[in-house]
Design a protein around this nucleic acid. Structure first.
Length: 203
DNA sequence: CGTTCGATGCACT
DNA sequence: GTGCATCGAACGT
């Protein structure tokens, strides 16, 4: 069943803890892809220097100041769309970055989306298909596999296009540590993952 | 193994 | 003009 608004309207670290093991679903014109969330990072408030809300309200970070249970998608390094889930409420800007999934539905669609070219060259042939645990490893890879782009920014996660379900899937042991890939705010242990899962970034 | 570095677009100063 | 919440190709051991 789909997670209700009240799930997201809570302290961000509580939402983060409970999101591990839940299922992110994208229905793009009837093409469904989904996966179990196995890695994420929390970005909390204007006082968190790594949070996009650190400079205060801007046009880009507007979703962070909006309602909980909405998507926040932005373009990173000009190439990767990264997907976040907005949490809390009452104008407190916070969100959770989804970093890795264990794919469930649409695995062949994911393989097709992850294939392709770079600099006009084939990067991966049909002979060397990605393993299941590689399809959604990393925040840029998972959005590519699921077909999540800037068009999926500001979507209500209680809608039918992009949402999160509780399918009561047993997750492994939960671990916490510093966030990775950032240059500031590394002192906060706000990255969570399923211990030992092969889709989790090796930090 | 390891490290470096280019691709690429947009928000923000 | 600068700097990214990245990825993987291309090098050097």
């Amino acid at each position: 069943m789909k997670l209700p608004r009240s799930f997201y309207d809570r302290p961000t670290l509580d939402v983060a803890r409970d999101l591990i093991g839940k299922v992110l679903v994208h229905n793009r014109r009837g093409v469904v892809t989904s996966g179990v969330i196995v890695e994420l990072e929390a970005y909390i408030g204007e006082s968190d220097p790594a949070c996009h809300a650190a400079p205060g309200p801007t046009r880009r970070n507007e979703p962070l100041y909006g309602h909980p249970g909405y998507s926040y998608v932005y373009l990173n390094y000009g190439i990767h769309s990264l997907v976040n889930v907005v949490t809390e409420s009452h104008g407190r800007p916070a969100a959770i970055l989804i970093r890795a999934l264990d794919p469930l539905d649409g695995i062949e669609v994911m393989r097709r989306r992850r294939g392709g070219t770079m600099k006009g060259r084939r990067t991966r042939g049909d002979r060397n298909p990605l393993a299941r645990h590689e399809l959604c490893r990393g925040p840029g890879n998972l959005t590519m596999a699921m077909g999540i782009t800037l068009a999926e920014n500001r979507l209500d996660l209680l809608g039918d296009r992009l949402y999160i379900e509780d399918r009561a899937i047993p997750a492994g042991a939960l671990a916490w540590g510093p966030r990775i890939g950032i240059r500031v705010g590394t002192q906060h242990p706000w990255r969570a993952w399923v211990e030992g899962h092969p889709a989790v970034s090796r930090a």
